[in-house]
Design a protein around this nucleic acid. Structure first.
Lengths: 150, 150
DNA sequence: TTTGCTGCAAACCTTTTGCATGCTT
DNA sequence: AAGCATGCAAAAGGTTTGCAGCAAA
């Protein structure tokens, strides 16, 4: 578990420094994303925020994660077939292991791509800003329970 | 350029062998996807098919690429922010270089991941079925023309 | 008081689906 | 004749946006 207050504090300071208001809704979203190793969907964030602040709307969730994403403090993982997932603990490129059945997402410890982006930039002339490395498959639980849903 | 008739013939034979009909619409979609190194959107496939068969509908495009995808003959690349892209020339995992401005997608020649999927499966217990490695950035042209749209 | 933020609902966009019609074999 | 495939239009699903009201500095 990454120390809660560290990421949370960093994000909140950055928000304030940039002149954004720290509303209760934003605070709730930051709290959830900063202290969580999971890769949450907008729906999950919405449900958790509503426990604190029952009047929260979906629009605010989306606006807040977009703000945090634009600040570089949350990584948005888009998937075509389901919704986006958000990672506030490690907002930088890293490999993911995605279960196609229960939809859980893990961060496997594999050697990073290291210099590949830089080499590729040199070879192709692209200015490389980001990358994604995702492995898709069935987690051990879903191999045993072929019907389990998320 | 990959030899046209080879992929095209293989796909058509497979369709027939599996008992699917080779309608003019399907033939047009196969022709476009099999003989094309680009990564086309559904919209682009639709437009090109309509040149041959003006009455074609979007539904048929989607049903056809889904059929080819399920047969393993077309790779569907889903993106969250824009539509899917389809690759009929290389329907197996390989890295992509994606320009975030003009949306072109290239296949860079980089060392493949080799044994990483297998190692990861062994370490995590996941049954790994697929993977994606995408690099995002600005292509040389878009670096010069920051406003160019696709 | 001013400006930013929120909630609600409608809009968006791509993809999927229901259904009646039409084409193949 | 039987069944698959198509076209059309509507539905679906997640995300974004317009707008009026509210709240924080």
């Amino acid at each position: 578990m990454i120390p809660s207050t560290e990421r949370q504090g960093k994000i909140i300071q950055k928000l304030k420094r940039k002149g954004f208001r720290l509303t209760p809704q934003r605070f709730a979203v930051v709290k959830i994303l900063a202290n969580n190793e999971e890769h949450l969907s907008a729906q999950e964030i919405y449900e958790r925020v509503k426990k604190d602040i029952p009047f929260t709307s979906f629009a605010t969730i989306y606006r807040t994660v977009a703000l945090l994403r634009d600040m570089g403090e949350v990584m948005e993982l888009g998937f075509a077939d389901e919704g986006n997932r958000y990672d506030g603990a490690r907002p930088y490129p890293h490999p993911h292991l995605v279960c196609i059945q229960c939809k859980k997402i893990l961060d496997p410890k594999v050697p990073s791509l290291e210099e590949l982006p830089r080499k590729l930039a040199k070879k192709t002339g692209f200015q490389i800003l980001n990358h994604r490395l995702d492995f898709f498959g069935l987690c051990p639980e879903c191999q045993k329970n072929p019907s389990r849903e998320r």
